[in-house]
Simulated assay, not measured.
Amino acid sequence: MTTPLDGLPTIGMPATRALHEAGYDSLREVAAVPRAELARLHGVGPKALHIIEQALGEHGLTLS
């Protein structure tokens, strides 16, 4: 199942909350963010980053 670009993939609540608090509400917005910047967000760990990267890959996108 493909995650829509206007939403976020199913990741843990801490990671989802961290992304929302940082102003990222969709895959489209997250794609423009460097991986290192996302990794610095409290609650966004390696597992969440992997899930985000997989969801972006479904659309032919990567983190910047």
Rank of each mutant, 00 (worst) to 15 (best):
T2C: 01
T3N: 04
P4S: 12
L5Y: 09
L5D: 06
D6Q: 09
G7I: 02
G7V: 10
G7M: 13
P9W: 06
P9G: 11
P9L: 10
T10P: 02
T10F: 06
I11T: 04
I11P: 02
M13A: 15
P14A: 06
P14V: 02
P14I: 04
T16A: 10
R17H: 10
A18D: 02
A18V: 00
A18E: 01
L19E: 04
L19V: 08
L19W: 04
H20L: 08
E21K: 15
E21R: 14
A22Y: 07
Y24R: 03
Y24G: 04
Y24Q: 05
D25S: 14
S26R: 11
S26I: 06
S26A: 15
L27D: 13
E29G: 07
V30S: 10
V30I: 15
A31N: 07
A31V: 06
A31Y: 07
V33A: 06
V33E: 02
V33K: 07
V33P: 07
R35E: 13
R35L: 03
L38Y: 12
L38W: 11
A39H: 13
H42D: 15
G43N: 08
G43D: 10
G43E: 09
G43F: 09
V44N: 09
V44M: 12
P46C: 01
P46W: 00
K47H: 13
K47N: 09
A48D: 05
A48Q: 09
L49D: 03
L49M: 07
H50N: 10
H50F: 10
I51R: 15
I52R: 04
E53A: 13
Q54A: 14
Q54Y: 05
Q54R: 15
A55C: 08
A55M: 03
A55Y: 03
L56R: 12
G57Q: 09
G57T: 00
E58Y: 06
E58A: 14
H59F: 02
G60L: 05
T62G: 10
L63D: 09
